[in-house]
């Protein structure tokens, strides 16, 4: 049901039945290794290209999710997923091997929450019984496409971010005992004329602030409603900018309750500069870490605002600004919603 300008309320309370997360060696050394169902020692994952490695991780995330949810893949109506690689081929190939009817989504690093919001919406309208939604990224594949060859020695500025290697998947169902998806806010694309692809956090911060503000306005609630407000991959720069923006707009978010997946995933001593990024970042940290906290009862209500910068290498070369987006999804422990 539409609420306000750009939000949905899911009155039938679709629930997240199970999740699956896969990570690479660098993520294994990070702050939350327990968030992963499968961790790989090798970036190649026995494949002969980075893109195939990404596809493999996505397939594993999907299989793990199905196994944990005890659902046969024949019973899943749709797969909604996307990634960052040109024309999303890793996702398409993974969709082809899983042979589940497939909807491709692209919101760069906000793909995870776009997929989850759409899945919840379809489930809520009884358009399906089970929907898988997933996002994946691979550090080397992304570096190759968006920046330089992996082994190229170019010094990165302290505002740049490290693309997460991994995949995250969630199974959304009509009913079940998992946490429920209660509402979602679809973001607008923002363009603040920022052109530096090595400072995506700074560019995306306004998108996060806009969507979070819109969510509170549409839902007529204030930040104290949530135990935690989680942003996708703003990193240190973007987190600070967006928090200050929200404070400037008189939205009193407690700094302790405002966390970022890009900061949560890696330890401070890992050479990630401003933090993690990539389509898998918000998917893994949300599904593998924060959702588990909700299931354990440590958190009751969370708002996840995944952020994405929608540029391409072509648009950057042609000196176009970076368009950014954020989508927010509210997840609540069963029985906690009003």
């Amino acid at each position: 049901m539409l609420k306000g300008h750009q939000s949905w309320i899911f009155e039938n309370r679709p629930s997240i039945l199970s999740t699956g997360t896969v990570g690479g060696p660098f993520e294994a050394k990070g702050k939350i290794p327990e968030a992963f169902d499968i961790l790989h020692e090798d970036m190649w994952i026995n494949q002969d290209s980075w893109e195939k490695a990404q596809q493999k991780m996505l397939e594993e995330a999907i299989q793990t999710t199905l196994k944990k949810g005890r659902i046969e893949k024949e019973n899943v109506e749709f797969l909604i997923a996307g990634d960052l690689i040109n024309q999303m081929t890793p996702t398409s190939f993974a969709a082809s091997t899983s042979s589940i009817p497939f909807l491709g989504t692209f919101s760069a690093c906000a793909t995870s929450m776009e997929s989850l919001a759409l899945a919840a919406s379809i489930i809520n309208a009884k358009g399906a019984n089970y929907i898988l939604c997933a996002a994946s990224s691979h550090n080397a594949a992304t570096e190759k496409q968006f920046r330089y060859p992996t082994e190229y020695g170019g010094q990165k500025p302290p505002t740049s971010q490290w693309t997460v290697t991994g995949a995250g998947c969630a199974l959304v169902a009509q009913n079940g005992n998992g946490p429920s998806i209660t509402s979602a806010t679809i973001g607008k694309v923002t363009d603040m004329g920022m052109t530096d692809p090595f400072n995506m956090g700074g560019a995306m911060a306004i998108a996060a602030a806009d969507t979070i503000e819109a969510h509170f306005r549409d839902m007529q609630i204030d930040p104290s409603y949530y135990d935690l407000i989680i942003t996708g991959d703003l990193g240190h720069v973007g987190r600070e900018v967006s928090l200050d923006l929200l404070h400037d707009r008189n939205i009193p978010i407690d700094a302790d309750k405002y966390v970022d997946c890009g900061i949560a995933i890696y330890r401070e001593d890992q050479p990630v500069l401003a933090g993690g990024s990539g389509a898998a970042c918000s998917a893994i940290v949300t599904y593998g870490h924060f959702l588990q906290e909700v299931m354990k009862g440590n958190l009751k209500r969370i708002l996840v605002a995944a952020t994405g910068s929608l540029h391409s290498t072509l648009s950057i070369q042609q000196k176009d600004p970076i368009p950014c987006i954020a989508h927010a999804v509210s997840i609540e422990a069963r029985g906690e919603h009003i």
Binding site: P157, N199, H236, V237
Partner: peptide, 13 residues
């Protein structure tokens, strides 16, 4: 946009 960029630049590392 100018205002935002100035706002952002102050917080940039």
């Amino acid at each position: 946009q100018q205002r935002y960029q100035a706002f952002q630049q102050k917080r940039e590392i």
